[in-house]
Amino acid sequence: MARILLVEDNEMNRDMLSRRLERKGHVVLIAVNGLQGVEMARAERPDLVLMDMSLPEIDGWEATRRVRADSEIGRTPIIALTAHAMDGDRQRVLDAGCDEYETKPVEMDRLLQKIERLLRASLRPVGGG
């Protein structure tokens, strides 16, 4: 399956999400803050990033921008995880460079669908070229 980088500071959420993704056969890499998230993305080249938005060191918004600005890993699909369900959040997240977003609590089936869709989309041009 895919190698997914989970950037999440809350230990319980991290544990639960990583275990549930692993059960579905994914390899889950963990980063606990935004800075580490960007470093891991560079070092490990994951297929997809699940990015919590409220993170210590640098927040998910900034981490997303740094990933996008990096020519090597700039095209990695990113799904934002946000606890806010405010109007306009979706647009803000997309504007920041994320491909998708999911509000917490995460609805697992929906998240898995989004992951799969993004992976297929990002594999297509790579597979073609």
């Binding site: 639960m16 999400l17 275990r19 917490k104 609590p105 995460v106 697992m108």
Partner: peptide, 20 residues
């Protein structure tokens, strides 16, 4: 409401895992 969502995340998530 935002604060309440975080622990709920764990309650729903872990119960779903255990259900599996």
């Amino acid at each position: 409401s935002h604060e309440l969502r975080t622990p709920l995340n764990a309650i729903i998530g872990y119960s779903e895992m255990l259900l599996e």
